[in-house]
């Protein structure tokens, strides 16, 4: 900055570009024009803290794993008011299933809020999601891409992230398989189904997810196994974090307990 001040007449193209980038980057998620700052909280202290309070609206979050859509919808049940848009391809919905109203009600989400875009191909779904993200009326946009969704590469996700910043809605990108290429998401997750804890009555009990936060712009990465209770409609921690710097509660058992003397059987 000082260099520019000293030589106001000889501003190079490079400097101009730097300024432009700085201006673009300056619009932090919290200071959007819409002023619709929102956080989607898991309700789990360690997890929310790692994210800086929760998943931020106006940012792009990437989920790898088909379970991502269900998790996003659970988080969106009461994060922001307004309609939700779920964009995907026709083929994707055919194989992974269409959203089912009675089931969504069970997640706490009003099915009347949800709107679907059945695109012909991934590129079209991407376009629809980007246009939708620019609309200030939406609460969230979920873009679901079958396979590893390679159509959503660095450039495409950058566009999504900018559109999300403009509109202020939650932006979720769900791939069915993880893509290792870099993307411009604020947070990247791998999500998998996990065996739920037994309810002691022989039934299914609560639903469990394995979360692996692989990229986090606002804090540390980590792994969690979380449990969703259908009755209370809330998340809780199933087991201590696996490799977030935390009290080592998950080390192999040390010697301990009671020692039973063995008796010779004769």
């Amino acid at each position: 900055m000082e260099r520019i001040m000293n030589k106001p007449t000889a501003m190079t193209t490079q400097d101009q570009l730097r300024q432009t980038i700085a201006r673009l980057e300056a619009a932090a998620p919290g200071s959007r024009a819409g002023g619709r700052a929102g956080l989607a909280r898991f309700g789990i202290a360690g997890l929310d803290d790692a994210l800086g309070g929760g998943l931020a609206a106006g940012c792009l979050h990437e989920w790898a794993g088909p379970a991502g859509t269900g998790l996003c919808l659970r988080l969106m049940a009461d994060a922001l008011p307004g309609p939700l848009l779920w964009a995907g391809t026709s083929a994707g919905f055919r194989t992974a299933g269409y959203p089912y109203g009675p089931g969504l009600s069970g997640l706490g989400l009003d099915p009347g809020r949800l709107h679907l875009v059945l695109a012909r191909e991934a590129a079209e779904a991407l376009w629809a999601a980007e246009e939708a993200l620019r609309c200030p009326a939406l609460a969230a946009v979920v873009l679901e891409l079958p396979g590893d969704g390679r159509a959503a590469d660095l450039i495409a996700t950058r566009r999504l992230a900018l559109a999300a910043r403009e509109g202020g809605a939650f932006a979720f990108l769900v791939r069915h398989r993880a893509l290792t290429a870099p993307v411009a998401a604020t947070s990247r997750w791998r999500i998998a189904a996990a065996p739920g804890p037994a309810d002691g009555l022989g039934g299914l009990g609560a639903t469990a997810f394995d979360l692996h936060l692989t990229k986090n712009r606002h804090g540390p990465t980590g792994r969690w196994r979380i449990v969703w209770s259908r009755d209370d409609r809330c998340f809780s921690l199933a087991a201590p974090p696996l490799d977030l710097a935390a009290p080592a509660g998950d080390r192999p058992d040390r010697a301990g307990g009671t020692v039973f003397p063995l008796r010779h059987a004769g």
């Binding site: 109203g101 009600s105 069970g106 009755d231």
Partner: peptide
């Protein structure tokens, strides 16, 4: 659709259906 029903007697349904 009717808004979410708080009644726990509603049968459990999947959120995605083929």
């Amino acid at each position: 659709l009717s808004p979410p029903d708080q009644d726990s007697a509603v049968p459990v349904r999947p959120y995605r259906l083929l």
